[in-house]
Nucleic acid binder design. Structure first.
Length: 611
RNA sequence: CGGGGCGUGGCUCAGCCUGGUAGAGCGCUCGGUUCGGGACCGAGAGGUCGUUGGUUCGAAUCCAAUCGCCCCGACCA
């Protein structure tokens, strides 16, 4: 038994690295001197729900005394919150180290100059906190650290012999979100583990990427999270392969497409599906214009006499992509996904065109727009006509005539429209067919807790990080970028594991493993037993909390349920029979256990749930 | 950035429409009774009503400006 406990205590409490700045590990309880007595701790639980909290994780983390809001999107972590954060950070740290990661600690304060080199000072725009120092030098708060890590690499790495390298840090990131919301799920200041790999070639990058992928799976599994790794858009910052680690929750803002049958999983920003073939018949030999007074929407045209069903229409959207006007062609019943448009065109800023811009470019107003006959010479304002894949080869379609209150029918895409580019631009809908296996696709909401992708040479090129190969040629370093949002993972855990009474933490990230609750502290026998059990738990390396408050049992039970400690040992009347109660928070099941065996029983349960 | 809502003891809120100098519940302090799922009785402490300006004899209340927070949307490597 002592071997078993020893083993657990190592798993739970060993510090792998010395404390550095804000990233210390949870101190060993037995070395703290002070006992973890509830009466001495700052655990400000609230009896009522906070008024401003909507989502469960936000509501519960505040009510259970884990966090307090300082200002919009900025939260203080109270002692319980910090304990959980340190647990998550320690798991991340161990798994990063396991795949050869070396921990750094980089500044949060960055000179604008560095970000201008990579071009992201402009790209990030308002999302970056920017200001001037006393000398009037432009500065920013780091949103991420590609630039800083790359600047270190370019100064100190010059030979292929020094590669590969995997560098990481766990540090505060700042993003001036337009709309912070949902407690810790979307904030302006947060802890991120960001890692970067540096390799000589693509093969090296593939290995580094796979290492990180494996590490992420272990991290989220150890945190007790049920995650799905999905194909994702790498966004405007570029990257060839992009995987997001998502936790399913209604509070999430991302939409994930999943095939239960073959396991295909992708963010809707990336997902594709197979649509049934459409038989268009032979098609008309030429287009025919017809008047459509009062018809301004796809819906209008489906009911208009001589109109067409939505899947027989071409929807023409006008977008401004980095100051260039583009026509986006979608099937009438399909929805454009703007991220896909961004990915397909490489545009950084995209927006709907304004009414006057539309009229200037096409000579008609929204509701009567079409791409038939639109060419560079006929419509010089239009720089791109991009069409959705589902429109390929379609005939007998109906679309706007670029003449108010008129439409065209008998349109054949290949014959009548000059398409510059084809792309997958539509959002997949639940119930569509999986293009891999033919199964049925499901769509659900999720929160992104991790994101890994291959950067390639974007930063090494722009910032000049190069190495010499054995043959003397100089090549840019190939990079990868790998992030985890620590507080977001915590919030995702609460979203996943809670009930009406409060939080039910996975044991691996719970602030304490056990709470010892004497039903009445004035009863010397009960309280004495509680103290002995507590001492033995601590000795066994188990993180215990003694609820020594002079409160009624109901208050203590409710608080214990609220803060979500995985196990509760209730010390009550049955002490006279040599027994205590062991309650499992997640199932709320209770069992009587003899006083002597309660510590080993808990140790065994923890060993089973903490890996 | 567009739309909506809200700022009143630590927390959740009432009072505002119809101006007259601030209330409840919870929490907190003290005393007593209670004691296995947020007890009860009694006595207390605690608020420049977000801020600034205006109207008025008098403003939490009416007007204006401003700051902040929340929600929806836009936005979001």
């Amino acid at each position: 038994m002592s071997r078993l406990l020893d083993c657990i205590s190592k798993q739970l409490l060993v510090s792998f690295v010395p404390p550095l700045h804000n990233t210390t590990t949870v101190p060993r309880q037995e070395m703290q001197g002070e006992k973890m007595r509830w009466s001495n701790l700052f655990i400000p639980t609230l009896r009522e729900d906070p008024a401003d909290a909507e989502v469960s994780s936000h509501r519960l983390l505040i009510r259970a005394g884990y966090i307090r809001q300082l200002t919009a999107g900025v939260y203080s972590l109270l002692p319980l919150g910090q304990r959980v954060r340190l647990k998550v950070m320690q798991i991340i740290r161990e798994e990063m180290n396991r795949v050869g990661g070396q921990e750094f600690f980089l500044p949060a304060l960055h000179p604008a100059e560095l970000w201008k080199e990579s071009g992201r000072w402009e790209v990030m725009g308002e999302n970056m906190f920017k200001f001037r120092d006393r000398k009037s030098t432009e500065m920013g708060l780091g949103m991420t650290h590609e630039e800083v890590f790359t600047s270190i690499a370019r100064h100190s790495i010059s030979s292929y012999r020094q590669l590969p390298q995997v560098w990481y840090q766990i540090q505060t990131k700042f993003r001036d979100e337009a709309r912070p919301k949902s407690g810790l799920l979307r904030v302006r200041e947060f802890t991120m583990k960001d890692a970067y790999s540096f390799d000589v070639d693509r093969t090296g990058l593939d290995k580094s990427f796979q290492d990180q992928y494996d590490a992420y799976c272990r991290i989220f599994t150890r945190c007790g999270l049920k995650y799905t790794a999905v194909e994702a858009s790498s966004g405007a910052m570029g990257g060839s392969q992009s995987t997001e680690f998502m936790v399913r929750t209604e509070a999430g803002e991302d939409h994930i497409v999943l095939c239960e049958k073959c396991g295909y999983a992708a963010n809707v920003e990336k997902a594709t599906s197979k649509l049934p073939d459409v038989d268009d018949g032979d098609g008309a030999t030429a287009t025919e214009e017809f008047p459509t007074p009062g018809v301004h929407t796809i819906e209008d045209l489906t009911t208009f006499p001589g109109g067409a069903s939505a899947d027989r229409q071409i929807k023409t959207l006008v977008y401004v992509l980095d100051d260039n006007v583009a026509l986006v062609l979608m099937r009438g019943d399909h929805e454009l996904n703007e991220i896909k448009l961004q990915d397909a065109t490489g545009a950084i800023n995209i927006r709907h065109a304004q009414a006057d811009e539309i009229r200037e470019a096409l000579g008609a107003s929204a509701g009567s727009l079409g791409a038939v006959g639109v060419t560079r010479s006929s419509h010089p304002k239009i720089t791109l006509v991009i069409a959705e894949e589902a429109l390929r080869g379609r005939r007998n379609m109906t679309t706007g005539a670029n003449k108010d209150d008129h439409h065209l029918r008998g349109v054949a895409i290949d014959r009548d429209i000059s398409v510059d580019k084809w792309a997958s631009l539509r959002s997949v809908k639940a119930g569509e067919t999986c293009s891999t296996c033919g199964g049925v696709l499901d769509v659900f909401k999720a929160v992104e807790v991790g994101h890994i992708f291959k950067l390639g040479t974007k930063y090494s090129d722009s910032m000049g990080a190069r190495v010499l190969l054995a043959d003397g040629t100089e090549v840019p370093i190939i990079m990868g970028s790998y992030g985890i949002g620590v507080e977001r993972a915590i919030a995702a855990a609460v979203e996943s594991f809670h009930d009406k009474a409060g939080i039910a933490w996975p044991a691996s990230i719970a602030p304490f493993h056990v709470v010892v609750t004497p039903v009445n502290i004035k009863d010397q026998e009960l309280f004495g037993t509680a103290q002995r059990v507590y001492d033995e738990l601590v000795k066994a390396g188990i993180e215990a909390l003694l609820d020594d408050r002079d409160e009624r049992a109901g208050v203590k039970f409710n608080d214990a349920d609220l803060i979500g400690v995985p196990y509760r040992i209730t010390i009550g009347k049955k002490v006279k029979e040599g027994k205590v109660e062991l309650m499992t928070r997640s199932t709320r099941e209770s069992e009587d256990v003899s006083i002597e065996s309660v510590v080993p029983v808990i140790a065994a349960k923890l060993e089973a749930s903490i890996t």
